[in-house]
Write a protein that binds this DNA or RNA. Structure first.
Lengths: 247, 247
DNA sequence: ATTCCTTTTTGTATAAATTACAATTAGTTT
DNA sequence: AAACTAATTGTAATTTATACAAAAAGGAAT
């Protein structure tokens, strides 16, 4: 196959296709894998399962599943998450497709990685048929993972760092009404980097889709903070116009 | 299926899986689609084929193909491009996986979109078995496309706009030695936006991986420009350190 | 009720980056 | 030698970023 007759190479490969029956192409499967980052009190964790079946029995792995024949990718990702956490309607982002030939021992399986950021104390991970246990792991101390899941996790970790500066990934983390400090702490944790209080606040005040409410914090033993609101309508309008906000 | 007994919902779907034989999952296929943008003299085009077979016979479409059972995704993308243009070794980027259930009339096919930017006069598109003709189309005036290719193309168009400010997509466009003006024109065309000559130059001079050479332009009827060089080694080093350059 | 403590919020002075625009330079062409 | 063109340098004005400090608003302690 390495013989290089530049001119004929194309034609050769072209004909190869016809020597493979079309059915052969429909022997692959695809899966989704979910990289769910959990934030709580300045700590970033990631949800892993311990596999209960072969291959990679007992290994820790990303929650994922084969996609149903008549199921959309996004739906499959939501299903995996829901089965594991009973949390519905989390906004997830597709990150990347991983498809190396040998990545799955049972056959040709490509997987589409989805990621999200949630408040992890709201979630009680459930064991499931394919998982012995489900556990939050600190992103700073991860076990060895099944398949190519270490690569996927790393890629998604990079991704949320890029995404969070221009997408409201934190809507799944913060309550309806939140303080600027709460938002700042999420940024600091995800980006692993400190921001100046005053300067962070100035940025926020420049963003029209983060609106101060009339209300403020109650029962804190210091000056209470104004509560803020995320206005997704306004955000979408800015996004349509190609506006990108950055931290 | 819409009956909502919140508590049992998970378990129900869980059991559904076992009523579907595992073989049923291995009846899907995946393909790659290549969105090849061609730059030449301040014009941005995209390479389309006219399909020679059903489904969507005669429609214009993105060049793409099913992935061989033992072929990596990147390799498939390179193959499609090579078969069509006889251009090897173009650096392509994966953009997104498209997997809506009904997107392909012949079965469940998800496709992974890859994109690249090339100098399109260097390329003579070849017709192939599955394409009646291959043609560069201006991105500003596109025909109706087969499948969900309009969505894919739009997504990739957005992508190169984001990518080009932090990745050297233009290495496939520029010659080994190039002028700053040449680089600026690519940016202006892709981003559809003008830059100030002097200010653009200052940015470039701040980037260590774009190095001025001793040489300069020959035979131009004005002050000749210094030629520059892209040093990928230095670029990669910066990238590892998480450095992102922006225009 | 006054003082203390904590965190929010505002302010401000400095440095750095961006922008718009003009002037100079180095070649070719007339 | 003057005119022409685009490259290159320069610079003033503006905006944005950064670091740091002071003021404000609550509860808790004396």
């Amino acid at each position: 196959m390495k013989s290089s007759q530049k001119k004929n190479k194309n034609r050769l490969e072209q004909e190869d296709i016809y020597s493979i029956p079309i059915d052969a192409f429909f022997k692959s499967a695809f899966s989704v894998d979910c990289v769910i980052f959990g934030y709580h009190e300045k700590e970033l964790k990631v949800l892993l399962i311990q596999r209960g079946t072969d291959p990679y029995e007992n290994y820790w792995a990303l929650p994922g599943d084969l996609v149903y024949p008549h199921e959309d990718l996004e739906h499959a990702a939501q299903r995996v998450l829901r089965d594991l956490t009973s949390l519905p309607d989390i906004s997830m982002r597709q990150v990347h497709a991983f498809g190396k030939v040998g990545r799955h021992p049972l056959g040709r399986v490509i997987t589409i990685a989805y990621t999200a950021l949630v408040e992890h104390t709201e979630i009680n991970p459930l064991p499931s048929n394919w998982a012995k246990q489900t556990k939050w792991h600190s992103v700073k101390k991860l076990p060895r993972l099944a398949f190519d899941h270490e690569e996927i996790l790393k890629d998604c970790h990079q991704s949320i760092k890029r995404l969070i500066i221009s997408e409201p990934l934190w809507v799944n983390v913060l309550p309806e009404k939140f303080t600027i400090t709460q938002l700042q702490e999420i940024f600091e944790t995800v980006l692993d980097k400190k921001f100046d209080k005053g300067n962070f606040r100035k940025k926020i005040n420049g963003l029209k889709f983060l609106k101060p409410l009339k209300e403020s914090q109650k029962n804190v033993s210091h000056r209470p903070s104004t509560l803020f609101n995320f206005d997704s309508k306004i955000f979408e309008k800015y996004k349509e116009k190609g506006f990108v906000f950055e931290f």
